[in-house]
Design a binder for these strands. Structure first.
Length: 130
RNA sequence: CCGACAAACUGUUCUAUCGUUCUUUUUUGUAUAAUGCAGAGAGGGAAGGAAAGUCCGGGCAACACAGGGCACCAUACUCUUCGAAAGCGGAGGUAUUAAGUUGAAAGACUUGAUAACAGAAAGUGCCGCAGAAAAUAACCACCAUACAGCAAUGUGUGGAACGGGUGAAAAUGUGAGGUAAGAGCUCACAAUGUUCAGCAGUAAUGCCGAAUAUGGGAAAACCUUAUGGGUUGUAAGACCAAAUAAACCCCGAUUUUGAAGCUGCCCGCUUCAAUGUUCUGCAAAGAACUAUCGGGAAGGGUAGGUUGCAUAGAUAAAUGAUAGGGCUAGACAGAACCCGGCUUAUAGGUUUGUUAUUUUA
């Protein structure tokens, strides 16, 4: 059985790398989520690092932002194994930013379905030719 | 029994599974002089009454700082508990105001609300519209007088704040005396302010008496008076690792300056002269001014860790998800240095007190 843990090493935590992803990463939209992804060479025990975010402008209350981030994290944690196996086969490492751009608080079921969709697309992710 | 108001307290809970963060401990692997690093298991802690707003105060930290003045900011009735302190709390006073009671009325009393509650008699400026005039008041009417006219009256000069009109506000109100007409001009009574004395009170203040004044409002225009106040905030700040050109700047050590001579010039040496100049007010004592060396800081670079940092505690930042039950389906809302107060948001529940109505007796 696949591990469902979500340790610190699996999170995008380097300030420098975050700025790099935001600046150079490729983005696509799976409503209500926006995904920014960049292939990296960072040393890690896991094939991907991910961060979740919700805009303060859209959700002024901290309670709402926490709620959204927790739902996203939970959905990712439960379904990440498909992405991991795919990336390991391709011997790639990704830095991923997930940003919630919908209006209002999401339902967990919906969020989970969309996250699965995103993970499938990320599994087939190809670095575009320069 | 139910409703209203006030105060205080509380702020969904339980089980299972999968997870997060911190910490203790066991164990496996691995590295080291040592501390470690990676994985697995077990135990324990893990958001709030407001964690919010950042409105006050304190701790803590960095920088600045002889003293005084100016400027700026804050506070502004009195007493006082707890407190480290505060613009916190409590009690009281005054003014305005609402309701009620009483009374013929004026008023008095009770309960509550509000108050940027010192000074407008230090000074400057301001007071829309209306009105003659908004603070050195003469438009009409009033009085005296000169001139013109037969006269009614008109014009000029002066007096005069009693009447009219305007206005939110017009020079304290009523009566009498007084006068050419008038006027706190004088007097009586009353009102208000200030000062002084007495009584009550710790005091603010109240009562009463005397003296004195009557100078409109606004201090939320500036201002004056009194008291207090360094500035910046944990992204403060400290340390380690990594990285590292020069100049400017700071600190330490050594080093006076000028003239003449030796000399082609510089360095250097010799002689003579000057209590070298500037600054710390002077004196005393010292520092700086020149050059070299060493160190620091800045710049540039690196952008990782430890600490600050907590009986929750991270550093892109943890407390969640799913399923089921209890009960009606759960408001406002998420820690980021800590503590005390204030303010604002808030469904439901509990307790205490006051009170209206209904029913029963």
């Amino acid at each position: 059985m696949e591990s469902q843990t979500f340790t610190k090493d699996e999170r995008l935590s380097s300030r420098k790398l975050i700025e790099q992803v935001a600046k150079e990463g490729k983005s696509f939209l799976v409503h209500p989520f926006k995904v920014i992804v960049l292939e990296t060479t960072i040393e890690s025990n896991h094939p991907a690092q991910v961060m979740m975010s919700a805009a303060k402008k859209r959700f002024p209350r901290a309670v709402d932002r926490n709620r959204i981030k927790r739902l996203m994290r939970e959905a990712y944690r439960k379904n990440k194994h498909t992405l991991y196996t795919a990336l390991t086969e391709q011997n790639k490492k990704l830095a991923i930013m997930l940003i919630y751009v919908g209006a209002g608080l999401p339902e967990y079921k919906l969020a989970e379905d969309k996250i699965i969709l995103i993970l499938q697309r990320l599994s087939k992710y190809e670095t575009p030719a320069q």
